[in-house]
Computed example of a mutant assay.
Amino acid sequence: MKTIVTFLISALITVAAVGQTQSLGKSDPAAKKILDAVSAKFKTYKAVQATFTFKSEDGKGKVLGVKKGTLYTKGNKYRVTITGGQDIFCDGVTVSTYDKTANEVTISKFEASANSITPQKLFTNFYDKDFLYKLNGEKKEAGKTLQEIELTPVDKSKSFFKVLVWVDKATQTIYSTRVMEKSGNKYTYTVGTLNGNANITDAQFVFNKAKYPGVEVVDLR
């Protein structure tokens, strides 16, 4: 489940600092133009609510599972809900990870360090200095014109060797992302809906113990 959450965020977002990648090698100016547009649009959002579908496959293409969920972000707060699985709350101070199956919540201190992963950072800094990218072309899917951008990590020790991002040309938003691991496994995330002006209260980002009778609390702060 941790893998789902980690890759999920990278599937729903893009970056403002893509220009910095140029110093690492030759990236495609056409791809940069598309990513810049997606990033600029995200910066106009006040609060985000996005639904997604996650599909995992093994090296032979066999589907290992399909899950659905919802991502909420507002300022430095976020929440990721996986249907029937985890619910992660971050109020900007603490991160509470609730496991529905075990009825257990693990609470840790939120650290906005350079190495930490948050939806906000990935929405604006996902590419940063870590990837080279190129535009592979366009394709039609579900009545949409999708622009395919291929990203390869500069750090070859990463567990994945390629990420494919499909951008909806008309709306300039991420439609789908596919992460390809060296093990052969593939993870595909497809955005169902995305509301950039969602009405989200701050209470949504706080784990309320009273709503989870009998929950076991593991406090790591």
Rank of each mutant, 00 (worst) to 15 (best):
T21R: 10
S23Y: 05
S27F: 02
D28T: 15
A31S: 11
A31W: 11
A31D: 12
A31M: 15
K33S: 15
K33T: 14
I34L: 14
D36N: 15
D36H: 13
S39K: 01
T44R: 05
Y45M: 04
Y45L: 01
A47T: 01
V48G: 06
V48Y: 05
A50E: 02
T51H: 00
T51G: 08
F52R: 02
T53Q: 08
F54C: 03
K55D: 14
E57M: 12
D58C: 07
K60W: 06
G61E: 03
V63Y: 02
L64Y: 09
G65R: 10
G65F: 05
V66N: 11
K68H: 12
G69P: 03
T70Y: 11
Y72L: 14
T73E: 14
T73V: 10
G75S: 07
N76Q: 05
K77D: 00
G85A: 13
Q86W: 03
I88A: 12
I88K: 07
F89I: 00
F89E: 00
C90W: 07
D91H: 10
D91R: 07
G92R: 06
V95E: 05
T97Y: 02
T101K: 15
E104S: 10
I107S: 01
E111F: 07
A112I: 00
S113T: 15
T118K: 04
T118G: 01
P119L: 04
F123T: 04
N125Y: 08
D130Y: 04
D130P: 03
K134W: 09
N136M: 13
E138P: 08
E138T: 13
E138S: 14
K140F: 11
E141P: 05
E141K: 14
L146D: 02
I149W: 03
P153T: 13
V154F: 06
K156H: 05
F160D: 01
V163K: 05
L164Q: 03
L164F: 03
V165W: 00
